[in-house]
């Protein structure tokens, strides 16, 4: 099976990125740090408390976003559906910005995640609400509703920035660009818990997603509880997006690119596509982040800027390639 070979290659690619990336950076890290768990040298401190957690976080964030992209694209039968285009990211970003500006002084445990989850859920409910009002679910309506919700929350974020003071505003702008800035293993562990949970939930929907990607009619005729499945997928994507956005800002296009590239590589069957996209998306973001912190070292480029610079042209290519606009 050719697809199995390609899948194994994707696994190897992902593993290689995780292993090599922490060694790349302005400070040279010798391989002997691998045995220095006590972190006696400066190099091993950099390796264990900065680079490795950062690479792992980037990988898990990319994996989560790619997983959301795969699920949403199959569910909406539209190649342009992602957490970003559907407004879920901006909802989460608005929630997180609210926390940053108004509630950060409370020092709530997981405050950022909670606020951003409320935001992403609000965005989903808004998009979903449109379809309830306009009886009969139309994929086109829902995507356009997503775009509207996206603009709505973006303008709310702008408003927040306008009324907040300069330092807060700068923090929000910096964070909106998307960056993975972590130290220690707390963040990667949180990411691991949420990504693992989210990906598992989506993985259990793979058979449903395959059928829903054909048509809702066929999915129902085969026995998929489409309404329930949709809710589960919305919930899982909201929570994954919320965690990523709360910590790293709204990083765009990973959820768009990873599933598409993987579809070209391993085909349309979600049973293998989800796994491939998760690995590929993770490796992709980890790689982008490695560029982000090394290209103009010692300064950093926000990783969101890099993914968007790659993603913009990719989006256009996609439009030209299968005239996705027609299916709107």
């Amino acid at each position: 099976m050719k697809k199995k070979v390609i899948f194994i290659l994707i696994c190897i690619f992902a593993l290689t990125v995780i292993v090599i990336s922490p060694f790349i950076g302005p400070v040279r890290i010798p391989f002997k740090v691998l045995s220095d768990f006590q972190m006696e040298s400066v190099e091993s401190q950099i390796f264990y408390s900065l680079r490795l957690p950062r690479v792992l976080t980037a990988f898990l964030a990319g994996a989560a976003l790619a997983c959301c992209g795969v699920a949403l694209q199959a569910m909406f039968r539209n190649p342009l559906a992602t957490p970003f285009t559907l407004g879920i990211s901006s909802g989460a970003a608005f929630g997180a910005a609210m926390y940053l500006i108004f509630a950060a002084w409370m020092k709530l445990p997981f405050g950022g995640i909670i606020f951003s989850f409320i935001g992403s859920l609000a965005a989903v409910l808004l998009v979903y609400g449109f379809t309830k009002v306009k009886k009969g679910f139309s994929v086109g309506t829902m995507l356009l509703a997503g775009v509207a919700v996206n603009f709505f929350f973006s303008s709310l974020i702008l408003f927040l920035q306008y009324i907040s003071d300069f330092t807060q505003s700068f923090r929000v702008i910096r964070w909106l660009m998307g960056s993975i800035d972590v130290s220690g293993f707390q963040t990667p562990i949180i990411f691991f818990i949420f990504t693992a949970a989210g990906v598992s939930i989506i993985a259990l929907q793979n058979l449903n997603l395959n059928l829903m990607s054909i048509s809702d009619e066929i999915a129902l005729a085969r026995g998929v509880n489409v309404a329930k499945s949709r809710k589960i997928i919305f919930f899982a994507t909201s929570i994954m997006v919320a965690v990523v956005v709360a910590y790293c800002g709204p990083i765009g296009f990973v959820g768009l690119m990873a599933p598409h590239i993987c579809r070209l590589l391993v085909g349309y069957d979600n049973k293998i596509l989800t796994a491939a996209s998760v690995l590929f998306g993770g490796a992709f973001l980890a790689l982008c982040d490695t560029f982000a912190r090394t290209l103009i070292a010692p300064a950093e480029i926000p990783v969101g800027v890099i993914t968007s610079m790659l993603g913009g042209p990719f989006f256009v290519w996609l439009l030209l390639r299968n005239s996705a606009a027609n299916s709107l």
């Binding site: 054909i214 009619e217 066929i218 129902l220 005729a221 085969r222 026995g223 998929v224 509880n225 489409v226």
Partner: peptide, 17 residues
């Protein structure tokens, strides 16, 4: 459940996508 029903009755649409 939709699944139990689908084990008994299926729908063949006018044409597939």
């Amino acid at each position: 459940s939709q699944k139990k029903l689908a084990a008994i009755a299926t729908y063949v649409p006018q044409s597939l996508p």
